[in-house]
């Protein structure tokens, strides 16, 4: 085998690893909401899209510092998470799961069209050019490295929040047994709202990492939404550690598939692998048997 070939493959592997960090962060927010509220937000990627637009406008057009723009975007998507739960999810918490799935699916259409209405369908870029790092013969994009680092820090922060605070403990408890916890005096509605706000904020954090590498347009959510759901399911819906592992497995598959053929085939391979894994472990790689 050629040495050049090996280096390119290594580069693809490392890029897959870095990409996995962002995917893991994306699936973390979705998993958190599913684990606690028991609703799959089909529109999660669209919340991320709004976060990306927020950063585009604040930083790219109004010249705010990027960190401040990202913080404002995180607050904004957190508020969106609040609104989604308060206006759409809470009125139908008692109805059939398919209706809950569909209500957020309707939001997907609404948010896409609303973004089209507000900002048109042009692809927009924040115009921030980050350097490319060279290490020996390997090249990495600084944006990816940064995204990976921040994603890991974000996940660690969520872990600390869930294990070290009272609210986090309540959230974990609710996700284990929602009937008992209300008897224990936990206000489940408050926990749901806090979870939705945290999940929305995580979408904003993911948005601020994605916007460094990708153009934003109203349909950008469709390019990473489905893979996010698949990661959550493959890890076991609601299981955050499982989602974390699945994110890295699938991002490597996508990256290696994209290395040998086109990127789309990488995605095809990832989705096929997901379906096969579901047949072997229907409850997800780390899900508990029900």
């Amino acid at each position: 085998m050629d040495t050049i070939f090996d280096i390119y493959l290594l580069e693809a592997l490392i890029n897959g690893l870095l990409f996995g960090g962002v995917l893991a962060l994306l699936s973390l927010g979705l998993n958190l909401i599913f684990g606690v509220v028991d609703v799959v937000w089909i529109c999660y990627a669209e919340v991320v899209m709004f976060g990306m637009y927020a950063i585009f406008w604040l930083h790219g057009v109004y010249d705010l510092p990027i960190v401040l723009a990202a913080l404002l975007a995180i607050i904004g998507t957190g508020a969106m998470g609040f609104l989604v739960h308060f206006l759409v999810i809470s009125p139908i918490l008692g109805s059939a799961p398919i209706n809950q799935l569909l209500a957020t699916g309707g939001l997907l259409f609404f948010l896409q069209s609303f973004a089209t209405l507000l900002w048109g369908i042009e692809f927009r870029n924040i115009g921030l050019r980050l350097p490319v790092l060279q290490w020996g013969e390997l090249f990495f994009s600084y944006a990816r490295l940064l995204a990976f680092g921040i994603a890991v820090i974000g996940m660690a922060a969520i872990y600390l929040f869930l294990t070290r605070t009272y609210m986090g403990t309540a959230i974990r408890a609710i996700s284990q047994d929602r009937e008992i916890m209300t008897l224990m005096g936990v206000d489940s509605r408050k926990v749901y709202l806090v979870t939705s706000v945290v999940g929305g904020s995580l979408a904003g954090l993911a948005a601020s990492l994605l916007v460094l590498q990708y153009d934003v347009h109203p349909f950008v959510g469709l390019s990473f939404g489905p893979i996010t759901f698949v990661i959550c399911v493959m890890g076991g819906l609601g299981n955050m550690v499982g989602g974390f592992i699945a994110a890295f497995i699938l991002s490597e598959v996508i990256s290696i598939g994209g290395f040998y053929a086109e990127l789309e085939w990488g995605y095809v391979a990832a989705f096929v692998l997901f379906i096969i894994v579901m047949f072997i472990r229907p409850e997800g790689i780390l899900g508990k048997k029900s």
Binding site: G106, L107, L108, F109, F110, L111, Q112, S113, F114, A115, T116, L117, L118, G120, I121, P218
Partner: peptide, 9 residues
């Protein structure tokens, strides 16, 4: 552009 689908959604 988009207003019709916004209302639809």
């Amino acid at each position: 552009v988009g207003l019709d689908t916004t209302i639809y959604g």
